[in-house]
Amino acid sequence: MSQGADHHLLIRPSGGRSRLDLQELWRYRDLLLVLTWREISIRYKQTLLGGAWAILQPLLSMVVFSIFLGRLAGLPSDGIPYPVFSYLGLLPWTYFANAVSRSGASLVGNANLISKVYFPRILIPLASVLSAFVDFLLSCVVLVGVMAWYHVAPDPLRSLWLVPLSLLVAILATGVGMGLSALNVQYRDVQHAVPFLMQLWMYATPVVYPASLVPERYRTLFALNPMAGITEAYRAAPLGRAVDMHSLLVSCAVVVVLFALGLWRFQRTERVFADVV
């Protein structure tokens, strides 16, 4: 035995409660990195504009929404120029929507890998969420340009809020993505329903309109959408406004619940992935 003689593996019938094995995930970090990198490099292969699409997606949406909703429909924007207002909302939203739809389709898309090699299956939806994160970082750079263009000065200290807020979006997207990817293995309906689901979810989130527009009696229901509190905080923080801690805490709680649900669904299906896909 030349190496790895201390490496032991015990395979038993699955059953009972499985838990997230973080040690194992750490051992497979190289694979996570490479899978993420593969997804990024494949995505914009054979496109003319390449990685520019990452920036164009939220930027073009901003232009369209500014013309139709800001100018023509005259939606209020809390006293900020509407393009800045909508871009700040589109930033976390575009990330969330991309991460969820990519990870939702990821398991089925990687069927060959799953049936030929063992690795913690959770790496597959995780790689999708991470690859969307790279797009997100690029579009964050554009935010600086958009704010400068409209002469909106950022609050440097409060902008730090964006770090934990982005992490929260990533956790939520991972939870939802895991759940959907597992469901998609059994019911391919999921991949057809996801674009529609994301569209509905966007209208339930104050991306293109301010939360202040929501009537008082619907506020509680509205706050149950975790993206609502996150998006509002996203908009408030860099402009130096106070973050609504109450609704953000509600969002955190819902994120935890959705993540746990997604993980549970994923692990329940995990044992039979290779048999089914």
Partner: peptide
């Protein structure tokens, strides 16, 4: 480790190289 057994156990000592198919994960456009 791809299929969980319905019964019984498997013990492996030493790192494994599973070569069930050459080129798993190869991607044409890379």
């Amino acid at each position: 480790g791809i299929y969980p057994p319905s019964e019984g156990t498997v013990r492996v000592t030493g790192r494994m190289a599973p070569i069930l198919e050459l080129g798993v994960g190869f991607h044409g456009t890379l």
